[in-house]
Each structure stands twice: as C-alpha cells, then as structure tokens.
C-alpha cells in the first residue's frame, strides 16, 4: 500500500469513527474518545519501540506531563488550543531531555531508567504540592461544548481530531527518509553509522516525536476526565501501553490502533464476562486473571500481534517486509 493510500485509509477511518459518535449512545462515545486518546500515545510509542527499538516504560509519566500542563494552562484561563500547544511544547522538551539520556542506553538499562521516570510522578506532585496539589490532583474547568453537541461527542471529536493529526504526521514521517533511518538504527547501529545516519540524533528524535504524541494523549485524558491526579498515571499504565502495542502488532500504526482498542475493550469485556458470577473474592480479581491469561495466550499463539494476523492472506510467499527485516535483528542486538 502506498503512502498516499495509507493516509487516505487513516482519514477514512477517522471519518467513520466520527460518524459513529453521532449514532452511538453516550457511554460508547466516551469509550471511543478514550480509544482516540490512547491511540495518540500508542502510535507514538510504537514508532519508538517498534521502529526504533527503544523500550520505554515511562510513557505514563510523559502523559502525566501533558495532562498537568493542560490542566494548569486551562485553569490559568488559557483557551483550549493554547493549552494543547503548551502541553505539546512541554512534553517535547521533557521528551528531549529523557531522549538524550536514553540514546546512550540499550535494552533493559533504558527500561530501568524509564521505569524510574514512571514512578517519579507521584513523588513530584507531592514534593511540589503547591502547584500540583499532591495525590488529589487538579480539576480541569472546561467550557461547555458549542451548540447542541453532547459532552461525550465533543470529547470524542477532540480526541479523534488529535489522533488524525498525530497519525497522518507519523505516517508522513515514517513513510519517508526518517522512517528508513529509524529502522536502520534499530537493525544495525554500525551499518547505519557507516551509511551516514546520525545514530544518536535519530534516537533522540524518535524519543522526542513519541514523547510529543504521549503529551497530546495525556492532555486529551485531562480533557476526558476533567481532572488530573498522579493516581491516574501509575506504573501499570506505562506497562499496559507497552503490552498494548506488542499485542496489537509492534511497529505498525494499525497495530497501535488495535492496541488502543484493546486497552479500552479488554478490561470491559473481562468485567462483562465475569459479571454474572456472584462471589466476593472473585469480584475484580477474576477479570484481572482473565486479562492476564488472554495476554499470555495471545502472545504465545500470535507473537506478531493482532495486526499481523490476516485471514485474507493473498500469497504465502509474500510476507510483510516488517516481519522479515524488522523483528529478527532486534533479537540479534539483544544477544550481542
């Protein structure tokens, strides 16, 4: 599929979603909005982790950065667009700082550093509680949506509007020279360097791009929840984001979309499945266990993720260039 086709698909997909928000009941619309917000984050993360091979366990913290920036700017009286811009700028800067450190690190060391970033959020909000109001967080005073639009529709449109921009920009970025450099650095740093690719520069840039996406996603979460607090960005969020992109299909935007859907749908499904069972200790715990089993089974049965499953396989010989060239070298490096 050519780049133009892909962008057309993205636009068509988002258009369909927006149509859905007109017919869905409010709660489904809200879930769609959540998917859109997650999609911004997973799309950025899959570019970083899937295409550039950098594992980040700290994207929850970057989302928190975006969310708090939006909350503080909105509460300072800024219009929503300016608040989004502020969220974008601040997370880009923070992403640049983390990215500079990250570019020197590999594999689990990078994971360790980003993990420490993820757990630092509540510490920062309570150390500077004058600004961030500790565990309780801030509420976000939003203007009511224009005209007869319901709150949920307005939230969904914002989320999917942002997702559209993020996806199209990412697609343009990874479809071009930058995308090839990302993969070259991931597959073989020495070869990439010999070919004239700035390894460190590419890695930092990848981190910055993905941080900016996470910031936008986080800002959207602040809008959806109309509040921000450290409890909403726990370590498990960062881990779930990684799980989502791997299960969805690492390295492709379609995989990121699947991941975003799963983040919303799987817990809800697990809850629905177990709802009929009435026993105290099972409540909450059974969905958790089911969720875990699903993860393991999917990973063992379909290691390429959902996006790699294709019922209409046209030819057994035609494999996606990604699985052929992409995944194996990752292993090579990890063993080197």
């Amino acid at each position: 599929m050519s780049g133009k086709m892909k962008i057309a698909t993205i636009v068509a997909g988002v258009a369909v979603v927006v149509v859905l928000t007109l017919v869905f009941p409010p709660f489904r619309t809200y879930q769609l909005a959540t998917v859109g917000a997650y999609l911004c984050v997973t799309a950025g993360l899959t570019v970083l982790t899937g295409l550039n091979g950098q594992l980040s366990l700290g994207h929850g913290a970057l989302m928190a950065t975006g969310a708090y920036t939006l909350a503080l700017s909105v509460n300072a009286g800024w219009p929503l667009t300016a608040a989004f811009a502020a969220a974008l700028v601040v997370t880009t800067v923070i992403g640049g700082v983390v990215g500079l450190a990250a570019a020197r690190l590999r594999g689990p060391y990078l994971a360790g550093l980003t993990l420490a970033v993820a757990v630092v959020v509540p510490a920062i909000t309570s150390t500077f509680d004058g600004t961030f109001n500790s565990d309780q967080g801030l509420s976000v005073a939003l203007e009511p949506p224009p005209g007869t639009v319901t709150v949920e529709q307005w939230q969904a449109w914002l989320a999917w509007g942002a997702a559209l921009i993020v996806l199209v920009l990412l697609q343009l970025l990874i479809g071009g020279r930058f995308g090839r450099e990302l993969k070259a650095v991931r597959d073989d740093e020495t070869a990439a360097r010999l070919a004239g690719v700035g390894v460190a520069r590419t890695q930092v840039l990848a981190f910055v791009v993905s941080a900016a996406c996470a910031g936008i996603g986080g800002a959207l979460f602040a809008v959806l929840a109309q509040s921000v607090s450290p409890g909403a960005f726990p370590l498990s969020l960062s881990l779930f984001l990684v799980m989502a992109i791997v299960i969805g299909g690492l390295g492709s935007l379609a995989g990121a979309a699947w991941g975003a859907v799963l983040l919303v749908a799987l817990p809800a499904l697990a809850h629905t499945v177990t709802e009929g069972i009435d026993a105290q200790r099972l409540e909450g715990n059974l969905p958790l266990a089911l969720f875990g089993v699903t993860l393991i089974v999917v990973m063992l049965a379909a290691p390429g993720g959902i996006a790699a499953l294709r019922p209409f396989k046209r030819s057994p010989f035609k494999r996606s260039p990604f699985t052929k060239a992409g995944l194996r070298p990752l292993r090579k490096r990890s063993k080197a």
Partner: peptide
C-alpha cells in the same frame, strides 16, 4: 491490511 484492520475495529 490497514483498511481491513480499521473495518474490523469498527465492526467490533
């Protein structure tokens, strides 16, 4: 692939 994915997501 992508179109197919998007359609399944929506159907789901």
């Amino acid at each position: 692939k992508r179109l197919w994915s998007v359609l399944t997501v929506i159907a789901l």
